[in-house]
């Protein structure tokens, strides 16, 4: 059975269809790229998957459990992690405290009023930070980190409660190519090691074609293609709406 099953979801904003009858599945241990031009409905789709938006109709199931109508924090509890297009971390907390926050939340200890937070989960947080290469900056405030580092902290936070599914919105935007590859390779390693499923959007085609196991393409709110790198490259519909006809815009 697939981990995630999306069945006929729809969403309209003020009469304009942002998502139109979209269905797809995501099996365990797969790195799935979601492509499409801006305004195609990628972010809307993401926001429905993690509960920030409610679809007008349709169903989203994680291992058979219906996610539609649930609050983001409940969906997180079901095992769905998420990173944002514009990285969201807690700026006034240290890198370590950011991770401790997730672990405290996982074990429902947020309302403890007495014992200092510093004494909770320090080791576990450092292990998670080490995975993304941020352990040496654990004591710095998130607000002063370089952009790429914030993205890595965010990834560590998204992985901290050992999710089954990870949603990543443009995980490598604004990163240098080398950093970019490292990050995606790290994610790929998690996919293999932990049998994690990842759905991500990405503008950089080289990243997608090199690492994604499978890709789906959105255009004007509809799913127009689903398949391997070769299928997508040669799909005439995709070429038309996404890659364009100009020779100068030939994909990688």
């Amino acid at each position: 059975m697939s981990l995630l099953t999306i069945d006929n979801i729809n969403k309209a904003f003020g009469g304009v269809k942002a998502i139109n009858n979209v269905s797809f599945e995501l099996p365990r241990g797969q790195l799935l790229a979601l492509l499409g031009p801006n305004g195609a409905g990628k972010s809307t789709c993401f926001n429905m998957l993690n509960g920030q938006l409610k679809p007008d109709s349709g169903s989203i199931k994680l291992e058979g459990v219906e996610l539609v109508g649930r609050h983001p924090r409940q969906i997180w509890n079901e095992g769905v992690g998420r990173t944002f297009q514009i990285s969201a971390t807690f700026g006034s907390l240290t890198v370590l405290e950011n991770l401790q926050m997730v672990l405290l939340s996982r074990d429902k200890k947020l309302f403890r009023l007495w014992t200092p937070a510093a004494s909770y989960y320090k080791k576990e947080a450092l292990v998670l930070l080490d995975q993304v290469g941020m352990a040496d900056q654990a004591d710095r405030a998130c607000s002063v980190l370089a952009y790429g580092d914030v993205k890595r902290v965010e990834l560590a936070m998204a992985l901290a409660h050992d999710p089954k599914l990870l949603l990543m919105d443009e995980p490598t935007a604004g990163m240098a190519p080398k950093e970019r590859n490292q990050l995606v390779m790290l994610v790929k390693k998690m996919v293999i090691d932990r049998n994690l499923s990842v759905l991500f959007t990405e503008h950089s085609m080289d990243v997608v074609f090199e690492h994604a196991d499978r890709m789906i393409v959105f255009a004007r709110g509809e799913l127009i293609a689903d398949g391997s790198a070769d299928d997508i490259r040669n799909d005439p519909k995709v070429r038309e709406v996404y890659f364009g006809s100009g020779k100068s815009f030939e994909a990688a």
Partner: peptide
């Protein structure tokens, strides 16, 4: 209280309610 987990949580909720929500707060 500000140094306890709850203190961390209120500062986190203030910094980014988006992120806080996405980690189950």
């Amino acid at each position: 209280i500000l140094f306890a987990p709850f203190g961390l949580a209120i500062r986190a909720a203030r910094d980014s309610d988006l992120r806080a929500d996405a980690i189950g707060v």
